[in-house]
Simulated scan of single mutants.
Amino acid sequence: MVDSTTGQEDMMIEISLCMIVRNEENSLPRCLSTVSAIADEIIIVDTGSTDGTKSAAMAFGAVLYDFTWIDDFSAARNFAFSKATKEYILWLDADDYLKEEDQQRFIRLKSNMPEGIDSVNMQYNLGFDAAGNVTASLRRNRLVRRSCNFKWIGPVHEYLEVYGPSLSSDVCITHEKDKAYTDRNLQIYQKRAAAGEQFTPRDQYYFANELRDHGRFEEASGYYEQFLDGGRGWVEDNIQACLKLAECRERLGEQGAVFAALCRTLQYDQPRAEFCCRLGAWHLDKGQLQTAAYWYELAVKLPRNGESMAIRNEAYSTWLPYLQLALCYDRLGQHEKANQYNETALLFHPTHPSMLYNRNYFQNLLGDRYIRLQSPEAEAGPASP
């Protein structure tokens, strides 16, 4: 391609899209339609589809391969990567796609990739509110140089091991799951445990997550403790393990253990917004309103790190602490302050039923003293009352 402004050839990188799929005839067309102008090659590895997945892939010119499923996601993904022929490899799941603005960002990235970059991480948007605003996200290594021969690690909850020069891109990948969650991953872990496998710290953590997600809180607690006691986990996994251990202990009715698990996060880093909200809730449940308010106020003051690879739940630093501050100060008798906090919460989540109920409550309670905040864009970040 020649740049019309310079007359010079535009050195656009070439990309192989590599995917593993099974029974994805409904979601795959949406995914491929949003990357067809980006990928120069589409590699689809099918692990046992019985529907129209292969036909859907062929409609986009994909190169198809079969792979016998062996309860190992990394094996399948590494096989897919081995079939790529282009300079860079992009990976997606069938229920991922790129919104229009992200397609344009990706095309610009293709045309302007800095020299020497071996991996590119992108924001992965996982949760959304009713208005489509992102509520949960993380960053993942998404585009890698093929010649580096990076490998996927782990049979389940696999990760792509990368090193060398990297780039944080403004491209976002959107995830919208269209299938019900199953116990597939839990079964894989249980088979491995029954076979006597010694789990890595990462597997201990993710096995605990699977047990927790399926309501097996006592077993999950044991694996979280084992993971944390080993002292070899990634700091972000350590923090999440503490928070999830606290949740398990709460479900088991062990309130003292809840407090200990929450505070254990402070061994690994400065307070995070989620920790502050969870500790605030612990104090609120005990009627310790001033202490609860302290932690909720800290949650909204902490800086947000958009470059972190850890999962982020925006609620903990936006509407949730403001809503809880409204509750705390209302119970403390500081109704006007509570009114302002509730209005601030509504700037972030204008349709939340609890906050709309509170708005009506404060209007009736305060009369002429009621204040309604007019919203600039919520993303701009309203000022703290």
Rank of each mutant, 00 (worst) to 15 (best):
I15E: 07
S16F: 05
M19E: 11
N26Y: 14
A39H: 07
I43M: 05
G48A: 03
T50Y: 13
S55K: 15
F67G: 04
F67D: 04
S74A: 15
A75M: 04
A76K: 08
A76R: 05
K83W: 02
D93W: 02
D96E: 14
K99S: 08
R105Q: 10
M113N: 06
I117A: 03
N121Y: 05
G127K: 15
S137L: 10
Y163W: 09
L167W: 07
S168G: 02
K179F: 14
K179N: 07
F199D: 00
F199M: 01
T200W: 01
T200L: 12
F207C: 03
F207A: 04
F217W: 14
E225Y: 04
Q240F: 03
A246T: 08
E254H: 13
Q255N: 07
V258F: 02
C277H: 01
D285M: 13
Q288H: 12
E297Q: 15
A299R: 14
P303H: 02
E307Y: 11
S308A: 11
S308G: 07
S317C: 15
W319Y: 15
L320P: 00
Y322N: 10
Q340W: 10
L346Y: 05
L347H: 12
L347Q: 15
H349I: 12
H349V: 11
P353E: 07
P353Y: 06
R359K: 14
N364F: 01
R372H: 11
S375L: 00
P382A: 10
